[in-house]
Design a protein around this nucleic acid. Structure first.
Length: 616
RNA sequence: GCCGGUGUAGCUCAGCGGCAGAGCAGCUGUUUCGUAAACAGCAGGUCGUGGGUUCAAGUCCCACCGCCGGCUCCA
């Protein structure tokens, strides 16, 4: 979250660049501003522009190959994307991996032929004639407002296209078709499902290979692989999307909760506990009921109950109990209890998308005047937490009002304005996500990428003046009259499950000492050292450090290997020399053998490292 | 939820109409060892679940469930 310039480049950054490419605003705008009127020679264009064009042209060459294989195919859209390109098709049958190889081979024929790619503006009428058999193209033509549309061709292939291409099909760079996936036409689930073919493309074979290798390495960091490997959690079909946290995972989970909880006095939060299950009337009052039908519900006699999917309605009930004076505000209710959302089966994803989770959730009730200060106050906490956790690669998004919303427009506008000012004041760069606000409030979202480059929202803050009205919340102002408080929804880590998923990948399972489930393994060299090993363990335990003795029959080398694979921060070897000197042989998971250290010194070192929450 | 793929031992995988396998992990025994894997033996399976085809089904077909890749959704 510090300015990017202040960060030292790391191996991770290099990997990330491979995986997700540059994400500057410029790239996005450039994509929209490109026109076919650009006369600059391809080789003279900026590298980023060349790559964009290569990916775009590769999509055309892919479509050419597909149309040749399936003359009856309908083709839809095929843009360049991060790392490559895709193209959507309506095909007579599902594609197989063998088809991808065939198509890729056909694409290389076009590259070999090095055909010129030419574009021009043509009248809509002519375009309709050319694409008469292509319903998706006709729909696109109908939606274009200009009297003319872009038309590109190379060889026998022709496409409706805004442009931004290489000059010839021989300039594509290095590419590989990677996978097929379903995709709705125009992203609308009520419209036909098309087959999307994805390809990766980079300027050179070396870069493509590096990307593909980086992807394979990233798969090894996937929390869905590391989590069970490190004995943190598992999932079972008996309760899809509901993690079983093992003792080690639970330590991690609870340590995070304890950490956030420890900050609450400083930031003025009061922890509360509200019910798990409510009469669904409460969600009708809040407005969630109709909008989010996937609540876990049950009916008992006349009453329909639901497992709470969020805490805000419960906190409103809590606020509503008793009268509040403006002198009490802001009131900040925090809660960690469990939430349940019946997410659609297809979206479940390891820990990052689950049905059962808890958040470091809180709702702040304050006056309109206190609102800007509360936002800044929250950002202070975000900065502290993300800093302690070493999460520097945050992306900040401001999500603004969408088509459906509750509340007054002027309140929305003011809240959006204040959020934007607060983010700017915090010194964070951000993007605007138009129309992506919650239905009741605009929000700021803090996003992080997982190992494979997928973006996940962790923290958020939402300025809500609608729900307090719906729940009839009041406070007595200095003027003696009743006023409606503002309600701020906020979470720093967001869903703890999701946070853990992202965080496991962020640190590649090498948790800093304060979070590591096992902080040290004591490794006796022979059985005669077991007593002393146990002494070392209990000396650590006395300081609250989580240590285990590996008392198994394996050789020391095997025990070290085991501890390394489990990514235990410290391995403490004890043999004759150490027992004699009341010392331990210290080895770290990253630095190898550090040599012997007196036991007392070791305990102090570890306790200090834990208390400082040092990152590795 | 939708499209496609996939499901064999705790884990990673082989077997793809004809006797269910390997490595690791586990257990037992021997070994007591100085910084990433000692040796030997043993045990481990309704081949996701339910139907169907067949003399015979992990193997072919259908349905359901889970998982994977996307899409959609995201309070």
């Amino acid at each position: 979250m510090e300015p990017r310039e202040a960060r030292l480049p790391s191996l991770r950054d290099g990997l990330r660049a491979f995986l997700i490419g540059p994400r500057t605003p410029r790239e996005r705008y450039a994509a929209e501003e490109r026109t076919m009127s650009d006369e600059t020679a391809f080789h003279q264009l900026p590298a980023e522009e060349r790559l964009f064009r290569q990916r775009h042209s590769a999509a055309h060459v892919l479509a050419e190959a597909v149309l040749e294989m399936f003359p009856e195919a309908k083709y839809a859209i095929g843009p360049p994307i991060e790392n490559g390109f895709y193209y959507d098709f309506d095909l007579p049958r599902p594609l197989t991996p063998d088809d991808l190889e065939t198509l890729e081979a056909r694409m290389r024929v076009s590259v070999e032929r090095d055909l010129p790619i030419v574009g021009q503006q043509i009248p809509k009428e002519e375009a309709r004639r050319i694409f008469a058999e292509q319903p998706y193209k006709l729909e696109l033509i109908a939606d274009i407002e200009d009297p003319t549309v872009g038309y590109f061709r190379h060889g026998e292939f022709q496409d409706l296209c805004r442009g931004g291409h290489t000059e010839r099909t021989g300039q594509l760079g290095a590419f590989k078709l990677t996978h097929v996936a379903g995709a709705y036409w125009r992203g609308d689930e009520h419209r036909p499902m098309l087959q999307r073919i994805y390809g990766a493309l980079f300027p050179t074979q070396e870069e493509l290979d590096a990307y593909l290798t980086a992807r394979e390495e990233a798969e090894r960091r996937d929390h869905r692989r590391l989590g069970p490997e490190l004995d943190l959690y598992h999932l079972d079909p008996i309760s899809p999307g509901s993690p079983f946290f093992h003792p080690k995972g639970a330590v991690l989970y609870q340590t995070l909760v304890d950490y956030i909880r420890s900050l609450y006095p400083k930031y003025g939060y009061q922890e509360v506990i509200t019910p798990q299950m409510f009469d669904t009337e409460i969600f009708k009052t809040s407005g969630h009921y109709d909008l989010f039908p996937d609540m876990f519900k049950m009916r008992d006699d006349e009453v329909e109950s639901g497992l709470k999917p969020m805490n805000c309605p419960g906190h409103c009930m809590l606020y509503r109990y008793g009268l509040h004076s403006y002198r009490e505000l802001p009131i900040r209710y925090a809660e960690f209890t469990r939430l349940h959302r019946n997410e659609r089966s297809g979206v479940l994803h390891g820990l990052t998308r689950v049905r059962s989770f808890s958040q470091d959730d809180a709702h702040i009730y304050c006056t309109l005047e206190q609102q800007p200060e509360e936002i800044a106050h929250f950002f202070d906490m975000v900065r502290e937490v993300y800093g302690d956790l070493g999460l520097l690669d945050v992306e900040v998004k401001i999500a603004t009002r969408g088509e459906y919303f509750i509340g007054e427009i002027e309140n929305w506008n003011r809240a959006e304005q204040q959020l934007q000012e607060a983010v700017a004041a915090a010194g964070w760069s951000y993007t605007i996500a138009p129309g992506e606000a919650a239905f009741y409030a605009p929000k700021v979202e803090f996003h992080f990428r997982d190992a494979l480059g997928r973006s996940w929202q962790l923290g958020t803050i939402q300025i809500d003046q609608a729900m307090p009205t719906r729940f009839g919340l009041r406070y007595i102002g200095a003027d003696g009259a009743e006023h409606v408080p503002v309600m701020i929804h906020r979470a720093v880590l967001g869903s703890l499950e999701r946070f853990l998923g992202v965080y496991i990948e962020h640190v590649e399972g090498r948790f800093p000492l304060w979070l590591a489930p096992t902080q040290a393994v004591v490794i006796p060299i022979a059985d005669r050292h077991l007593d002393y090993a146990e002494e070392v363990r209990s000396a650590l335990a006395a300081k609250g450090l989580r240590a285990q003795v590996d008392s198994g029959p394996d050789r020391m080398g095997a025990k070290i290997r085991q501890a390394q694979l489990q990514k235990v921060p410290y391995m403490l070897v004890v043999g004759d020399r150490e027992a004699e000197a009341r010392a331990v042989g210290v080895r770290t998971r990253s630095g190898g053998d550090l040599g012997a250290m007196p036991l007392e010194e070791l305990v102090e070192r570890l306790a200090g490292e834990r208390d400082s929450r040092a990152s590795e």
